[in-house]
Write a protein that binds this DNA or RNA. Structure first.
Lengths: 286, 286
DNA sequence: TAGATTTAACAGTCATTGATGTTATGCCAG
DNA sequence: CTGGCATAACATCAATGACTGTTAAATCTA
């Protein structure tokens, strides 16, 4: 992947902070373990800034600091990290969010899980007011609480910084006593038959959500297709609809449709003028 | 209260926006009903700005707009408004928060209700980490979720914009399945014998919190003493401790102590250099 | 429809926040 | 105890967002 100096320019100018952190993380993952001073040289920032970046990455659970440098954490630990997911496959998620929006009618009770894709849906919600929104995702809670005309029901529970959401038994109990017209959910990986996620707590909550929703819609960008993860969430046939972006390969779509999965394609959003500085669709997590 | 021109300077230079809105609200409450253009003259801002202020105040439920001007809402409607409470008796709340902080030991499970006083407590929490914090107040949730070393359990429920918190049956059920070492709560008014609040939903949630906490601490600034409100929350003897700021009159304190209320006085915070521009302690709500 | 009121759109100013580097201090291992 | 490493404290700079006014369009009432 070339050298870091080149990479620095490639990765998009804005958001220098998070961009650099991502590159530092990648570098650490590749090398396994590096010194703070070498990172300082490599990325052309002061040692102090390197330390601040590493503190942040450590807080996110991506790396582990020790005296003199940092070492990598197993990927499974940070792949579900929010900060990471937010930077990933933005355009696809916007397109999918737009499509999802069309499935919502005024007056509905809409349930949103803690995935960055549903965050895009949340931003479009005022168009469909009045609505009731049910979610355990803090970012969605913040967003929707500012909107008027939308009744917000927050699902409580223990806060997980890596997901920025509330999970655990209290959350599941809250879900069980509610009923939504439609659920929008996402997951880390989708095979030809099943949806997967790498974390137990998340799986339990998502399953509870599925039980409490009339119509279950799975939102996935094409980067997730063809993968798998530790825990099986549900067979795809449990979902009433699956929405993917236009980047999904034809043969995969055919395979899904052969299995009677109700697949929808979300057309890319053209107007967005900030869709630049992301040359090819990167891998996606979430 | 002198004329508005004078008042304008008295009310503190900074936060001109909210300060002006407060004064507009006071003026409207006093007059009952005024025109937008007269407010524009009176406060020396453009008509557009007046309209924006009035929109904001209307959103908060303080006034009602009609073509040509605004009219007042009954005070009971807006007295519990967050935006209002946040501007009120800051110094006292900071002092009380400091005192409350000393009641917290590392390792405790601390429950905070949706009052602006507990927000001051929340800000000091990192000093006592590790901790578990339980709350239904979105502002506290936002604050604590950024802290490390503090386990956060959010109480879900229906979002009430005026309180910026989650209430209702789901919230109460969540509370009932938890247990806290200490509860910090506040209320709108306190007589010699009881604590009061003007809203049903709030009262129910606060009572549930009291049932789920080992030690119950009532935080009140002195502006709340000697008042009452529609609903009785609980007798003061139900609280293990009552913390008030140093502005509380001696006879009131004596009366409380005669009734065996365990009253603590929070000394004013000296160092804060921004304690200026608030000549006398204003009335307080919350 | 005419006149007034209200809202929308735009732009400039200002304060606040966030990111960074520098310097100074604290800490740890050999 | 000493040299490097880590952190804390402070200042600077950029960027973001909040406030406000102006102008133009839209809406309402008489």
């Amino acid at each position: 992947m070339a050298d870091e100096q080149t990479e620095q320019r490639l990765s998009g100018g804005r958001n220098s902070r998070t961009a650099r952190q991502t590159r530092i993380a990648e570098h650490v993952l590749r090398e396994g373990s590096v010194s703070a001073s070498s990172l300082s040289e490599l990325f052309g920032v002061s040692l102090m800034t390197v330390h601040r970046d590493l503190d942040e990455l450590e807080r996110q659970g991506v790396v582990r600091k020790f005296r003199g440098g940092v070492s990598a954490q197993p990927s499974s630990v940070f792949e579900s990290n929010v900060a990471y997911r937010l930077r990933t496959a933005r355009a696809e998620k916007v397109a999918i969010g737009r499509y999802a929006r069309t499935m919502i009618e005024p007056g509905m009770a809409v349930m949103l899980d803690d995935s960055t894709t549903t965050l895009e849906v949340a931003q479009l919600l005022p168009d469909a007011a009045p609505l009731t929104v049910i979610t355990n995702f803090l970012e969605v809670i913040k967003t929707v609480s500012r909107m008027s005309g939308i009744r917000l029901i927050a699902l409580g529970g223990e806060y997980y910084p890596t997901h920025d959401s509330f999970l655990g038994v209290p959350c599941m109990e809250a879900i069980e006593s509610l009923r939504a017209d439609v659920l929008f959910t996402s997951t880390s990986a989708v095979s030809a038959t099943h949806a997967y996620h790498q974390e137990q707590e998340i799986v339990l909550v998502k399953r509870a959500m599925m039980r409490s929703a009339e119509r279950k819609v799975l939102l996935i960008d094409h980067g997730k297709l063809g993968g798998s993860a530790l825990h099986q969430l549900a067979p795809l046939t449990d979902f009433d609809d699956v929405v993917v972006d236009a980047g999904a390969p034809g043969d995969v779509l055919r395979a899904l449709r052969d299995r009677r999965i109700n697949v929808h394609i979300a057309d890319p959003v053209a107007d967005e003028p900030d869709a630049r500085d992301r040359p090819e669709a990167p891998d996606t997590l979430d």
